[in-house]
């Protein structure tokens, strides 16, 4: 196993820095659709903080968060060079703390679109087991927001 953080990253997309040529995003690849650019930049800031704390890289933090999300069975990694390959696979040794995980999960919490807000609010007990974890998160988000009108 390669130590965490050895791999040189090349992307460097942040609020203050555009994607660089020689990377997929910097080369004008059209995907993905970014729904909320502010949230994306805030997420990058948070991921950089978590990565620094673990002496890891942002991609490694993303992969460590993703592989332990509920109902994720497999994660397909790709790399354009050996360094990225080593970096990606070494993320398997990165163990995030519960706090790291909840910070990332809370920042990127999904809005409960209908019928999910209604089901989370009114018929949680009758949900399928695999979806309860998501309904919990919707209830948490709804309870955290003021509904005074």
């Amino acid at each position: 196993m390669v130590p965490l953080g050895r791999g040189a990253t090349t992307g460097k997309i942040t609020r203050n820095k555009k994607a660089e040529p020689g990377t997929r995003q910097g080369n004008g690849w059209p995907e993905p659709y970014i729904k909320n650019l502010d949230l994306f930049y805030n997420l990058v800031d948070l991921l950089q903080d978590v990565a620094a704390k673990h002496k890891a890289t942002v991609p490694q933090v993303v992969l460590a968060w993703l592989r332990d999300r509920p109902n994720v069975d497999s994660v397909v990694l790709a790399a354009r060079n050996k360094e990225q390959l080593h970096e990606n696979i070494a993320s398997y040794n990165l163990k995030l703390t519960d706090e790291d995980i909840s910070q990332i999960t809370d920042l990127t919490a999904l809005e409960p679109i209908y019928p999910l807000w209604h089901r989370a609010m009114n018929s949680y007990d009758r949900a399928s087991n695999a979806e309860k974890v998501y309904l919990d998160a919707y209830n948490k988000l709804m309870n955290s927001k003021s509904q005074d009108i």
Partner: peptide, 30 residues
């Protein structure tokens, strides 16, 4: 994918495999 696909896959016995976990390079940030 949390809205429908991930829980549906689990309930149906269909494995959930994630493509482009770094957002097609979007999250390959230093």
């Amino acid at each position: 994918a949390e809205y429908e696909l991930l829980p549906a896959g689990k309930e149906l016995g269909i494995a959930n495999s994630i493509w482009s976990p770094l957002g097609e390079g979007l999250l390959r940030v230093k």
